[in-house]
Design a protein around this nucleic acid. Sequence first.
DNA 1: CGATCAATTGACGCTTTTCAAGAGGCGTGG
DNA 2: CCACGCCTCTTGAAAAGCGTCAATTGATCG
Lengths: 241, 241
Amino acid sequence: METKPLVRKLGALVALTDVELRVLDALHKRRRTFATGRDLVHQGRADQATYILVSGWAVAYKILEDGQRQIIDFLIPGDFIGLRGMVSHLSDHSVEPVTDIEVTEVLVADFMTALADTPRMAIAVFWATSRDEAMVVEHLINIGRRDAAVRVAHFLLELGARLALVGLGSKAGYACPLTQYLLADALGLSSVHVNRVLRQLRDKGMVTFRDGFVTFDDYGRLTEFAGFDPEYLDQIGPLLK
Amino acid sequence: METKPLVRKLGALVALTDVELRVLDALHKRRRTFATGRDLVHQGRADQATYILVSGWAVAYKILEDGQRQIIDFLIPGDFIGLRGMVSHLSDHSVEPVTDIEVTEVLVADFMTALADTPRMAIAVFWATSRDEAMVVEHLINIGRRDAAVRVAHFLLELGARLALVGLGSKAGYACPLTQYLLADALGLSSVHVNRVLRQLRDKGMVTFRDGFVTFDDYGRLTEFAGFDPEYLDQIGPLLK
DNA sequence: CGATCAATTGACGCTTTTCAAGAGGCGTGG
DNA sequence: CCACGCCTCTTGAAAAGCGTCAATTGATCG
């Protein structure tokens, strides 16, 4: 039996019944692929569908008046794409693939019906989105009150923790398709400064960001340096049995 | 008929039936008051209740390892307090009153039951929290990619727009109990710099922050200066009729 | 083989922080 | 009623962090 990312994600929050699993399964309509550079969700446009990321990385961002870009979050397999846009009629940000990606499409109408029919699942979805918000909050704190080096370190650790949850990373490191430009736009830094900071961290033997791989050279020392607390990602098991 | 903040908030998102209104009404248990400096939600502690702010202001924040504080959001009447903490077992931030506040308490168990019994309301709550997340996202962008002056201007405008939604502000200005220290911790700046920037904005005749009041001296010029787009707060009416 | 993009490094300058000091308001206790 | 402490706001001077500009390299791609 194939374990779909969405099932794994929601199942970790709420113990799902057979009926709910069937409803969930019916949600996965078409499987689609998107190539790098082609927007899935476009800033300021209403959407009729949301997606669940199956493979590859994407980035949620917003373009400012002056052309600068702020990255809100990187999306990895198992994440919802454009869920807020679906529910608030107007998406306030864009999403585009970082790599070629594979997604399954979920139609708004189907999703709403599913939530109404299976309230426990609605809670699970609610919980999942709350976790996403916790991520954004952590991101906010990272940018607001940490200096560049700690900020970069913290970010790489957070990404590692998220990837580990879906089996794509460990305390040794992970494959990471991001460029230093993307990192800069996520962290509110210039790419030049990101480069310098990465070299610092590498020279200190804590973490190496190179050739599409993040390698934790000294995980313990890095977490201490970054003040990293993975608690907000912890799951204590399903809230609803 | 008294219009409770929660009813007004959810009613704007989903047209509620009589049954749902009754369920909602039953949620409002005790009314409580908290004085300045007494935490409602404490970082790292699991909670059994969430609150809905009736009057006064509160602040959601997180304390970092080194003692610095990052403010996540200011809470104004009609806002949920500690909703995420309720759903994820572990609250990742603290909430404390800025002024003396009045809240109504909602028990987790009641809330979960209500959501399960009235799925449309669950969607409304889901939507409301999505809007809150949009606020945090805007906050993130503000801190990540705008310089201090624009950041302060944007923030004061955003606060004004939120207050206007609940009848506590206009394009002329609003009563604002925040200190410059609170502003600094929200914006990721030092209080000294916030002070300087506020003087700049005042000298330029755009906005005055003084004696507990924010006065928009030139609303049009300020919005242009800040690149403020209130769209993300807009409501196009109930999604579900 | 030219073009584009990611990474890299140096020099310089500006934004913001830090440190320091002082003024005014307000509550509390003697 | 006054003195004192505490908080908030204010301003100046100096230092630090980070951004901008610029130039170089290597890799990939058509």
